[in-house]
Design a protein around this nucleic acid. Structure first.
Length: 569
RNA sequence: CUCUCGGUAGCUCAGCUGGAUAGAGCAUCUGCCUUCUAAGCAGAGGGUCGCAGGUUCGAAUCCUGCCCGGGAGGCCA
């Protein structure tokens, strides 16, 4: 209906004024007295033509053909054109809505999209901040798939570099303790209990292979690089332990993510970027291209990238003076790898702490003649946890992170996902643990699920009473038996696809959360004010069509969020 | 200092590609269960949209300046 109105308006404007405008709106007005659809076309045109909007509106309305779905057109306020549909027209779409799968929601584009998200370091457990990104990325992937895009969900594993060495060292030292060797544990090593767990697992796997025969000379210094140096010297197979630790941590992370209903299908190892196939590695090719394009220089034995030429505040190091590539250098190669795979759009979902990275990365892409516009980096702001009114969340300094696993244990997967998703992602989030645990209307997750459970229960009751809904009859009677509230609900249902399209356009999920809550609310009102298992067949058939449509939206909406729609609560 | 996100009801937040009378939830107050789930519903009160200018028919929304708060600014990742 909306698109038909748009076409007619476009045509009449062309005819009347030989103008073409695209940026006018056709929206659902806030107030019922403003009709079912409303357009600001005359206001926009008024500006363009420097003429009175109301006058223009009048001309357009006079030009508007008679339609059987249209009951009235009004001009209101400064020049809005308001369309009032007939009752039949308002219920019309429900028919296709119920019979179709959600194919009507697909757009024609069918883009290939890569979403990289979570990508947390395998040096420790995944915490609530990552959890937010995880929920967001997975929901976005689902939403884009629903609208017809091909989506690959990817996790980038930082399996090389200093941090992984520190991980291995930490495990190595804890491992010695399992053989009753007391070795000083430097404060720069990872302190968490998960290191001990990993050490135990290493002992099971390697036996005493890495057991130290004598004390470390360097341990007095607490200098990690010195200790590592000595260990490398006396334990030639140390890399095996490093690899073990990384895959151990990755398995831990994967299993938590799976519990959280997050499943990446692609895992890219940072280390693999340095493995050469047919002569040179991806890293080498990337680097030599930067060099060739003359965007690098040597200074203090380090290789620098001229990122300041691309709007970054200063140049950045690619290769340190000890010849070790920086994380940034890897990341450039990784992003080149993303571009090489021929996606239409690349989406990065990063934590807010990576914010400063965007400029230099886009600069590097530019330098490689890759279009930075193809890449969209979304920033997920921090999560703070609130319990009994107190902030219990992490402080980066002290390393006090609340793990995602703990949070799930505390509030459950459903609530955790919803609370993460219900907030605009680039805004910091206060996660109220007490609220997430409540099982009443205060908790939007339960509220939405409850609406679904109530509908299911109604349908079960039908079966119990051996009543069968006649859909054909229901559709026929729909517009005749329904009241205002019911038309309002129908409007709400119809808006589902607008909400989805909006989310897709803005790469946002929270509008869907708000929408589902609103729809649930309308249903609860409806439920409370009505009897559904009516004695009168026509009324019953019609109402159950409406109820089935609500249910369908709730299921689909919750599915995007990966939240259950329980039959019974 | 630079960059960035924010400041909307007592609280937590939507709305921001300019539109009609400012939107939810929570909290507060008043009602509703012998009917298919009260984990629910109905109603009420509650606002200088941080401040000051500007742009125009029209600004919470766009521009400029300022005030306040979160975050980020390594040859760590």
């Amino acid at each position: 209906m909306k698109s038909e109105i748009r076409e007619i308006l476009n045509a009449s404007v062309k005819k009347l004024y030989s103008e073409e405008i695209n940026d006018f709106d056709i929206t659902r007005p806030k107030f019922k007295s403003h009709g079912n659809w409303s357009s600001n076309i005359a206001l926009i045109l008024g500006k363009e033509l420097k003429d009175q909007p109301r006058k223009i509106a009048k001309n357009i309305v006079n030009e508007f053909p008679k339609k059987n779905w249209l009951s009235k057109i009004d001009i209101a306020g400064p020049g809005f054109i308001n369309f009032f549909l007939t009752q039949e027209a308002q219920t019309e779409f429900l028919k296709s809505f119920l019979s179709d799968d959600f194919s009507f929601i697909e757009t024609k584009e069918n883009r290939k999209i890569l979403i990289e998200y979570v990508s947390s370091n395998p040096t420790g457990p995944i915490h609530v901040g990552h959890g937010r990104g995880a929920a967001y990325g997975s929901a976005l992937a689902k939403l884009l798939r629903l609208t017809g895009d091909k989506v690959v969900e990817e996790y980038y594993v930082n399996d090389r570099g200093l941090q992984t060495d520190v991980l291995a060292l930490s495990v190595f030292l804890r491992y010695q303790e399992l053989f009753d060797l007391r070795i000083l544990f430097p404060s720069d090593c990872y302190q968490g209990d998960y290191i001990k767990k990993c050490a135990k697992s290493a002992k099971k796997y390697f036996g005493d292979k890495f057991m130290l025969k004598k004390d470390l000379k360097s341990q007095q210094s607490s200098d990690i690089s010195l200790i590592l140096e000595e260990i490398y010297k006396i334990t030639p197979d140390f890399k095996e332990l490093t690899d073990f630790c990384i895959s151990y941590q990755m398995e831990e992370i994967k299993s938590i993510l799976l519990k959280f209903k997050v499943e990446h299908e692609s895992w890219v190892s940072e280390k693999s970027l340095y493995k050469s196939s047919k002569g040179s590695s991806l890293f080498e090719t990337t680097l030599s291209e930067l060099k060739k394009n003359n965007y690098t220089y040597l200074e203090n034995d380090a290789l620098w990238f001229k990122s300041s030429e691309f709007g970054d505040e200063k140049d950045r190091v690619l290769i340190r003076n000890n010849q070790d590539p920086t994380y940034f250098a890897s990341d450039v190669a990784y992003h080149k790898f993303k571009f090489d795979r021929d996606f239409d759009q690349l989406i990065n979902i990063w934590g807010a702490d990576h914010h400063g990275y965007i400029a230099r990365l886009e600069g590097a892409l530019d330098a490689l003649n890759l279009n930075p516009k193809k890449l969209e980096t979304l920033i997920i702001q921090f999560v703070s946890l609130i319990k009994s009114g107190e902030n219990i969340s992490m402080s980066t300094r002290k390393g006090e992170f609340i793990s995602l696993e703990e949070l799930i244990k505390e509030v459950g997967v459903e609530a955790a996902r919803f609370f993460f998703l219900a907030r605009k992602s680039d805004q910091s989030l206060e996660f109220d643990i007490d609220l997430a645990k409540r099982e009443d209307k205060n908790n939007p997750v339960y509220y939405i699920q409850y609406a679904h459970a109530r509908i299911s229960s109604l349908q079960k009751e039908l079966l119990k009473r051996k009543l069968i809904i006649d859909n054909e009859n229901g559709f026929k009677k729909l517009s005749k038996v329904l009241t205002d509230l019911e038309f309002e609900i129908i409007n709400e249902i119809e808006q589902f696809q607008d909400v989805i399209q909006q989310c897709k356009k803005d790469l946002e999920i929270h509008p869907l959360c708000f929408y589902l809550r609103d729809l649930a609310s309308k249903f609860h009102s409806y439920y409370n004010a009505n009897k559904f298992i009516e004695d009168e067949k026509d009324l019953r058939d019609a109402k159950f069509i409406l109820v089935a449509a609500i249910k369908k939206v709730l299921i689909q909406g919750l599915d995007i969020l990966s939240i259950n729609a329980p039959e019974k609560m």
